[in-house]
């Protein structure tokens, strides 16, 4: 130990310079190698470190470990919940789209139906209207024909009378009405 002390004092002298004259006051031995302090250091290290270990094992590690575990559990739970919600929303979207397609289909069917009904109705009405018109046309034509026939037959009479009158004027011949009518009919045939 004596040689060690000398070495340490030399060391102190080398690095400390002015320290050499003070070295004697306190440290004859380099403090870390002073065995007289070992017992006290070991004793207090055992107490303090033992206490630290006890608190670490009993309080601190379970607590921080618990916090970290809670958090990772929470994160895992939240992720599961998020994926569940996502799936659910996807399902809802699917349902919505299916319903939308169904509704669209229905709407088209209804529109088609309406259109067909309207068309049928329209055709019906047109047919009725056309039938009415055709009836009226036929009636009108009938009436026109009657009037024309009547007019034409009256023309014959007028022509016969006119022919009689013309003949009576031109010549002193009295023409038989029947003969005049036959002549008118002959002329009319020739013209026709």
């Amino acid at each position: 130990m004596a040689t060690e002390t000398e070495v340490m004092q030399e060391l102190a002298t080398d690095v400390g310079g002015a320290a050499v004259e003070h070295a004697g006051d306190h440290a004859v031995v380099f403090p870390p190698f002073d065995t007289t302090t070992f017992a006290s250091q070991l004793f207090w290290l055992a107490i303090t470190f033992g206490l630290l270990y006890y608190l670490m094992a009993r309080v601190i590690v379970p607590r921080i470990g618990g916090i970290l575990e809670d958090r990772s559990d929470r994160i895992v739970g939240d992720l599961a919940e998020a994926s569940r919600l996502k799936e659910e929303s996807e399902r809802v979207i699917e349902t919505y789209e299916a319903e939308l397609a169904e509704a669209r289909r229905k709407a088209q069917a209804i529109a088609e139906e309406r259109r067909a009904a309207v068309n049928a109705d329209l055709a019906e009405k047109r047919k009725t209207a056309e039938a009415g018109l055709a009836g009226k046309l036929a009636e009108a034509e009938g009436r026109i024909r009657t009037i024309r026939d009547k007019a034409l037959s009256e023309v014959d009479g007028i022509a016969t009378e006119a022919a009689e009158a013309v003949v009576a004027r031109l010549a002193p011949v009295t023409v038989d009405t029947a003969e005049a009518a036959a002549a008118v009919a002959r002329v009319k045939r020739q013209e026709a």
Partner: peptide, 17 residues
């Protein structure tokens, strides 16, 4: 003692046991 670099490692009793 202020300049002694070894002094900082010196142990001294606070409560004698």
């Amino acid at each position: 003692m202020a300049n002694d670099p070894i002094h900082q490692f010196q142990l001294f009793p606070i409560v004698d046991i």
